[in-house]
Design a protein around this nucleic acid. Structure first.
Lengths: 217, 217
DNA sequence: TTATTTTTTTAGATTTGTCTAAATATATAG
DNA sequence: CTATATATTTAGACAAATCTAAAAAAATAA
């Protein structure tokens, strides 16, 4: 069993490596963990001793298969709890992250399986992220981004790649929530902002925001 | 905000003082915390610095009003989570304690209130213990014990004063669960065991077990 | 390819909660 | 009321996770 802190390191290393197979750098971990590079080096050594990561000095880290499974399990718990908070306790999608950060460390395999069942085995969390099954498997549904759409193209909002409360509240206010269908009408050359139509309403979205809206065409 | 460990100390001091207004002794805390008296002294000093307990050397501790409210809040969370685990996730009453020990430390007032509402504001946990409301208030329903009943007396099982899994499983097997009505037929002088009738079945219960069955006449 | 910048690691210190062993205070027994 | 036993505290140490400052390695630029 890992400590609370070790689990957070594993999760962060996982998130930093899931989109590219590169070794994860000490500084990148330090930034996400809100700590210093020296502390990260210490912890990495500890995780390497436990065979949860592969580590070569100055070369960054990779998760081992064991480490990866541990990380995925934490992600699974985090996302299941988020579903619980939104579906059962009526929290909004921008309110659940911090609470789930705590709940994800509760240690009981039985609890997770029963929660999963109680929630009817959800496939995605309230932000559209996939929920790994009990074996750590999940489908990586292909997606594009609103910022990559061409004029006239239509798509469905299937997720976000930025999870801050401020960002999610902003989307909510614009009516850009999961499952909504949109059509891109205009791309502004000047600043890259896009005009879209959602539920017959015309909305303008900055390029920065559009980059973080995941679309299934 | 208190640390995980501080919260456990507060909770234990609360449980040790709730049934008698005496100061709580260092050794008693050490036993419940599964630690050494020296460690308890250290922690007590820390809690005293934070004004959560009143402490005089060699004289044990009392909770302050602030400390008591903090402790009651942890108890509230523990018992609400137990209700959730039993009512919603179908755990048995002997399976929930350890998981609730972890869940009770989750820090979100909003979460607790919504959980309370989701569970329809339960008054008691799966072992019959009262759940404090959000202001820390709860009714101390008077009770006696099966071991105190006289021959021929009737009563209703309203709780237990021993929460170990082994004990709860034993009661379950005997059919002695919350809400059951029983009649005491015989008290054995020799060993203090009692014969009772529950749902038309005759059962013999040792004195030690009878002591931990709480009865409302 | 040498110099400079960036990244990472080491060394040594700090904090939290714990421990053992020894010292001190309180309670109990004769 | 003294001796003994029990309970508690102090002193000093340790492990986990962190930090700062300095050293070392790797990457980048001139």
């Amino acid at each position: 069993m890992q400590s609370f802190t070790e689990e957070n390191y594993l999760k962060i290393i996982y998130h930093l490596s899931v989109n590219n197979d590169q070794a994860v750098q000490t500084n990148a971990i330090a930034e996400k963990m809100q700590t210093k590079a020296a502390s990260v080096t210490d912890m990495i050594k500890k995780l390497a001793d436990k065979k949860l990561v592969l580590y070569k000095k100055y070369q960054g880290v990779h998760l081992t298969e064991t480490g990866k499974q541990a990380a995925i399990n934490i992600v699974r718990k985090h996302r299941l709890w988020e579903v619980f908070l939104v579906e059962k306790l009526n929290f909004k999608w921008d309110e659940v992250h911090d609470i789930a950060e705590e709940l994800e460390h509760i240690n009981s395999a039985e609890l997770v399986e029963r929660l999963d069942e109680f929630l009817s085995f959800p496939k995605n969390d309230p932000h559209g992220d996939p929920i790994p099954d009990k074996h750590g498997k999940f489908d990586a549904v292909p997606f594009t981004r609103l910022s990559k759409l061409k004029t006239g193209e239509k798509g469905l909002i299937m997720g976000v790649s930025e999870h801050s409360s401020a960002f999610l509240k902003h989307l909510e206010k614009l009516g850009l929530t999961l499952g909504k269908t949109l059509t891109l009408t205009t791309i502004t050359d000047f600043d890259g902002s896009v005009e879209i139509i959602v539920e017959d309403k015309k909305i303008s979205v900055t390029r920065e925001v559009a980059k973080h809206i995941l679309i299934r065409i």
